[in-house]
Amino acid sequence: MSDSQNGETVLRATGLSKLFKSTVAVDDVSFSLKRGSSLGVVGESGSGKSTTARMIVGLESPSSGSVEFPGATGSGRRGRARLVQMIFQDPFHSFDPRITIAEALEEPLRLHFDWSRERRQARVAELLDQVGLSTRQGGALPRTLSGGQRQRAAIARALGIEPAILVLDEAVAALDVSIQAQVLVLLDNIRRDTGMSYVFVSHDLAVVRYITTDVIVMRSGRVVEAGQTEQVLADPQHPYTRLLLDSVPRPGWDLDRVRRGRLELDSMKETS
């Protein structure tokens, strides 16, 4: 995965911070994303990674710092939508329960493109096919589909808008492992085919290793380590990254290492 070097920058976050009342959720986070690359944002719950994702798509406004889309032409909510789309963790509630999957997919097409009804419906069929959903499933209400099917429908809906960037907030965390793999392969194929860039928020390092080219590791709202995914995961520099890696159960896994890692981190906090 060396295609990240040659693309132009599509997203630049500079000094992003977010305060909720007096709690600092995100603290001075900067990163950039190149066309066709995939940035992993990892960290445990409460590390500020979801808030960062929500600031990228404009669901939260940063307390300070900025999110820029170099080369972007559109403005406002609709313009931003063409640049960046988001897939949420909960695939059920990201659909209006009253309307069918196909209707939900057609809706943004009507907003963003000046197409005829026939053309929109043809595009919907194309999108459903792309994520491996049948026409019958397209005609169904969200509640009749499984979690994996809904998540693929959500991906299809986002792809319909043809954004430059797709933000995935724990998008596969709620899925079964086999479905997870299916969705990941789908996402990787789309990235290769369309040159779409991903911001992939996850706590699952195995998933991040598979899907991302670069990674930032967040803890308590700050970036503690950043770099190419292979390099960071193979040779973690920060003790927190090491702890995250050690926390993944695998053959020869040792709980004591996890405990020692926690102690090391805690002692760091006292001295800093």
């Binding site: 988001m86 909960d90 809706e107 943004p108």
Partner: peptide, 14 residues
Amino acid sequence: AKPYVGSHAVMGFS
């Protein structure tokens, strides 16, 4: 409060 409201905002709907 349901996420579909946020997802529609992200899709560009007013």
